[in-house]
Structures are given as C-alpha cells and as structure tokens.
C-alpha cells in the first residue's frame, strides 16, 4: 500500500512541480482537467451509450408531450409518470459508470488534500504536534528531536484519557524537515513544513492499514506502539479571481467544465 501511495504521490508531485510557477489554483485546475477528461473517458467506457441515448430521446419526447397536451390533464398525468420512470432508468444507467468513477476520483482527492488543504506553519507561531499511542500513556513522554530552526515552547502534555501526547512547537525560520520521536528503542519521524513555497504538506501519519487509505501522504508508522502522529497546520483556501474558496469547490467546477467541454469531441452521451 505504501509503495502504491508513494507512486501516486510522486506522479502528483511531478505535475504540481511543473506548474509551481503559477498560483495553486492553476496546478489544481490542471489536476481537475485531467480528472474531468478521465471521468468522461471512463463514463464512455463503462456505460451503455446506446441505451442512454434511447432513454434521453424518450425524456425529450415526454417533455414535448407535456407542452403539447398541457390542457389535457389525463395525458399530462400519464406523461408525468412516464417521465419519472425514464428519469429513474437514466439514473440506473448512470449508476455503473458512477461507481467506476467514484473510487479513483476519491483516491485522487484524498491525495490532493495534502497539496491544497493545508498551509505551511507560520513562522514564530505556535502549533501542536500530537502522537496517539496504541497503549495507555504511562511514564515519560517520548523524546522529541526537532530540526534546526524549530523550538519546543512548552513541556509535552501527556493526555491519559486519550493516550495522546502533545508538543507545542514554533518554527523560527523556514524549515522543511522531520520531527524525530524516540520511544521504546524505536525512532519514528514526521515531516514538517514551514516554508512558504511548500507545495506538499503531508497530513496525519498513521499505523493502521485501514487508516492509511484516508491518510496516504506518508508511509505507515512502523513503530508498533504508535497509532498516529499529527501536526496541526493552518487551513488553506484557493484564491480564484480574488475569492478565497475551498479547493474542492474549485476542483469540481473545473473538472465538470472540462468534462462538459470534452463531451462532444469524445462523442459521449451523458
């Protein structure tokens, strides 16, 4: 799983890096166009285009019927029922491609999260790093070694009720490095980004094979005692024409527009 995630990540990083000269909205638009094209291609491949076309024709016919016989209630009523049925049939036909598209799209979006949902740590501001253990917290907190330029500004807080330990750290200079935790003879690392131009900011680093599906940015934690490690980064928004919007909104708008634009050249019935 780790190497699969690493492969996807490397591909995404390469694309992001290629467009790093522009604003984040640009590279995200590139991903969205690729995703939109992929979706439209997958839709054509996985749907029954002939049946879809037939259902759409029927839908148009019923709509026309509604207009023509608008003063005949019995016909209108019958047409409404037929229209509903045709709609359901359309949805049924769209279900299969939707299922095919959903998984890769979700995978892509989970990966993109690390590129667009977080900002690097602000200099001279505190943030919290938390480690959750798989067994109760007892004894001293694990040793934490910080990269140069990052300070520990409070003693670690051992949270017995949640088996967590939190550290308060403050970057004093631009940093792209690793926090090193030492517990039970093992060393665990966690990447940390406090560089303004950082494009990729990994989120929670987890241990469980299931959780790594949601947090695919870093390889799984090898130390058996650790459940996850998390750095609280400030949330980020994408700036588009002066508006600050959530990256998912921008991604879906562009992907949809790309899909609609490619509909005709790719001869896809939607």
């Amino acid at each position: 799983m780790d190497s699969f995630n690493a492969l996807i990540n490397a591909g995404l990083r390469a694309i992001a890096a290629a467009f790093s000269w522009g604003p984040p909205a640009l590279s995200l638009a590139v991903f969205a166009v690729l995703a939109g094209s992929g979706m439209i291609w997958a839709f054509r491949k996985t749907s029954d285009q002939a049946k879809l076309q037939a259902v759409k024709r029927k839908l148009y016919a019923y709509l026309l019927e509604l207009r023509v016989y608008s003063d005949e209630p019995s016909i209108t009523w019958r047409t409404q029922v037929s229209l509903l049925r045709a709609n359901l049939r359309y949805l049924g036909l769209a279900l299969r491609p939707a299922v095919w598209i959903a998984a890769p799209l979700a995978l892509l979006m989970i990966h993109l999260e690390s590129f667009y949902s977080r900002q690097p740590l602000a200099l001279d501001s505190d943030t919290v790093v938390t480690m959750r253990l798989r067994s109760p917290v007892d004894g001293a907190a694990p040793d934490l070694t910080l990269p140069p330029g990052v300070e520990l500004t409070a003693p670690p807080v051992r949270i017995v009720s949640r088996s967590e330990i939190s550290w308060r750290i403050r970057p004093r200079q631009a940093v792209s490095g690793e926090l090193q935790f030492r517990l039970g003879g093992q060393t665990v690392s966690m990447p940390i980004e406090a560089r303004r131009d950082a494009h990729f900011i990994p989120g929670r680093r987890v241990n469980s094979a299931l959780a790594v599906l949601w947090h695919p940015d870093s390889p799984r934690v090898a130390a058996s005692a650790v459940d996850w490690i998390d750095v609280r980064y400030p949330d980020s928004a994408i700036s588009v024409f002066g508006l600050e919007i959530n990256w998912i909104v921008w991604f879906l708008i562009v992907a949809m527009l790309a899909g609609l634009a490619l509909k005709k050249p790719m001869k896809v019935v939607l």
């Binding site: 919290v128 003693p155 807080v157 051992r158 949270i159 939190s166 308060r168 609280r232």
Partner: peptide
C-alpha cells in the same frame, strides 16, 4: 481541557482549534 498528570501544562481542544498552554 487535558492536563498533564505532573507538569504544569494543559491542552485545550475547541471545536475547530487546539492549543497548549503552560
């Protein structure tokens, strides 16, 4: 609020925020 068992430090969890105070 989560207090450390021995050290004079605590973590505060708000709906959208988290911070540590000495």
């Amino acid at each position: 609020m989560h207090a450390d068992p021995a050290a004079p430090v605590a973590r505060f969890d708000l709906p959208d925020e988290q911070f540590v105070l000495r």
